[in-house]
Every structure is written in structure tokens, then in C-alpha cells.
Design a protein around this nucleic acid. Sequence first.
DNA 1: CCAAATTGCTTTAAGCCTAAAATGTTTCCA
DNA 2: TGGAAACATTTTAGGCTTAAAGCAATTTGG
Lengths: 163, 163
Amino acid sequence: MLDSETKAVETPEDHAEELRLWLRLLTCTTLIEGEVRGRLRQRFDVTLPRFDLMAQLDKAPDGMTLSDVSKRMMVSNGNVTGLVERLVESGHLDRRTSETDRRVQVIRLTKLGRAEFRKMAAEHETWIADLFADLTPKDVRELMRLLAKTKASAQKSAARRRP
Amino acid sequence: MLDSETKAVETPEDHAEELRLWLRLLTCTTLIEGEVRGRLRQRFDVTLPRFDLMAQLDKAPDGMTLSDVSKRMMVSNGNVTGLVERLVESGHLDRRTSETDRRVQVIRLTKLGRAEFRKMAAEHETWIADLFADLTPKDVRELMRLLAKTKASAQKSAARRRP
DNA sequence: CCAAATTGCTTTAAGCCTAAAATGTTTCCA
DNA sequence: TGGAAACATTTTAGGCTTAAAGCAATTTGG
């Protein structure tokens, strides 16, 4: 009663478990991300950010604005600017100013970009399957559930700080 | 019998679930990492990579070699070189050439570095606890277990490619 | 013993990434 | 209607990151 309150105020809580969880989450992601990046480079001479950007555009046949891309990829605006620049340069992306709002740039995959992406994506999917091969379907479902909960929790915490 | 073999060869497997899992894992990590990076910058004007490097050294009172650090942090050697340079410059790290092997550089936290890190780490731990606040202890245990399994699976897959 | 391989680290070139400031455009509303 | 606010993007300055090449020191196997 009084004890539990006293304890909460006076003794620092033990959050070692959450810390370990965060480190493990980070390790897993870094490991897989590094593996995917290496394979993309070796097989297709493409970087992971470029692949990710093309993946977003592949899902949007009518194109996306740079802001959309930036939100979806969870990266800064300036980052997208440079990424798009290089992909337009290499002929994978088409970029045009919106007819109705001259602030907005709409980008799309070119025919070349789409063809190359589809080839990469097919192989990429097998890499991911292989990397997660030891998980049972039940494991996958359970992880999905727990990560959804984690994402919601983190978003709530972020919103608490930056309302 | 024949059917299952035929199927395995001729029809592409469906790995959409694993793909979704990977994307969710990546989203969670990016979200939390971004939040932690922002808080470190605002509260302590320090970058996440510097914090991570100091965290490694805090666990090694006798210091570490650059290779050790690079393996632990899962980043390239050249990356560590630059990171250490900046932290020595700012007075947080002490670096000396090994007596017994002149190729080796041993780095340690300075008194200043350790003091600053301890302060940051204490606060950092509360951020993590808050970000994971909605997970029950059981959720945490279960996630730990599944991520351990994931890590093992990914390592096995990576080793298959690069034996 | 000594040349070849290995190891630890640094350098290089290129690209990724962020926060913050700047630029140009549109919307809002008094 | 006219300016302030909001918005989309780009620019800037600085730091992070990688792969690959290079250098120096050590280990190894003939």
C-alpha cells in the first residue's frame, strides 16, 4: 500500500529486461538488414535505400509525392530528394511537377525501373524467406502480433513527448 | 509424393507472411531508433553511434580493441576509426597502442567519458522502458524468445551463403 | 630463417542521413 | 484582397556508413 508507492518514488525501477529486448530487436534487424544489403549489392549492384524507394513506388502505379515517400519510408525530406535525384539519373524514376500544385513533385517508376524492381523483388522475397526459415508459421503469427503491440506502444510514447 | 515435389519445383512459394514480418520488424526498429536518436540529441547533444560505442566501452573497464568494437557493434572497421577519432577529440575516449602488438589500438572511456555516459545511460533506460511500456512481462519474455530464434535462423542463413 | 598469408587499422570514394535554414507556392482568414 | 501561416521541396553543413584498397606488424609453414 504505502510501501508500493514509496518504492515507486524512491527506488529506481528495474528496466533491464526492456533494455535487453531493445538490444535484441536491434541486433536482429541489423543482422538481417546487413545481409539483405550485401545480397542486393552483389546480385544487382543496387543499394537498400534505392530498393526500398522502388518498393514504395511499385505499390503506387499513379505515383507518389516526395512527402508521401518520406513519410512511408520514415526518413527525412532531404534524404528523399537525393535518393530520387540518383534514381532519375539512372533512368529508374520519372519525376514531374504536379499540374495542380506547383510545389509538388510526383515520381513514378519508369518501365525500366519497374522491370528491374520486379526482378529484384522476386529474389529478395526468397532471401527473406530463407532468413526466417526456422520460424514456424505460429512463430511468425506470434511475432507479428507482438511487434504490432510494440509499434503501438512506441508510437504512443513518442506522441506523449511530441504531442 | 510426386505432387509435393512437382509443386515445390514449379510453383513459386508464397513468402508474403515472412516479408510482412520483416517489414514490421524494420518499422519497429526504425521507429524506436529514431525516437532514441532524437532524445539523445536534444537532451545530451550526442549521436546514437557515439552513445553505442560508449556503451560498449562502459562494459569493458580494461578497454577494447577497435576490432572488438567493430564486431560488437556490427559495423565496418573504417566506421569505428572515424567514430573513435571524434570521441578522442572531444575528450571522452583514451586511445593507446598496445604494448605487445603494435598493430592494435586499445580504447577506454576517460573519467569524463564514463561520467557522461552513466548520466545518459540512466535516462536512456527510462526512455526504453517508456517506449515498451504497453508490453506485459509475458510479452517481453515471449518477444525475447522469438527474437532469439529469429537471430539464430538469420545467422544460419547468412552462414549458408558465406561459409 | 624467411617469404607468404593474415591481422589490425586507416584511407578513399561514394553514398546515405539528419536537422535546420532557405525557397517558392498555396491556403487561410481578417 | 493582402499578408500571414502552412506546405512541399531543396539546400546546407555535418556526421555516419560501407566496400575496397592500402599499409604496417605479426604469424605461419616450408
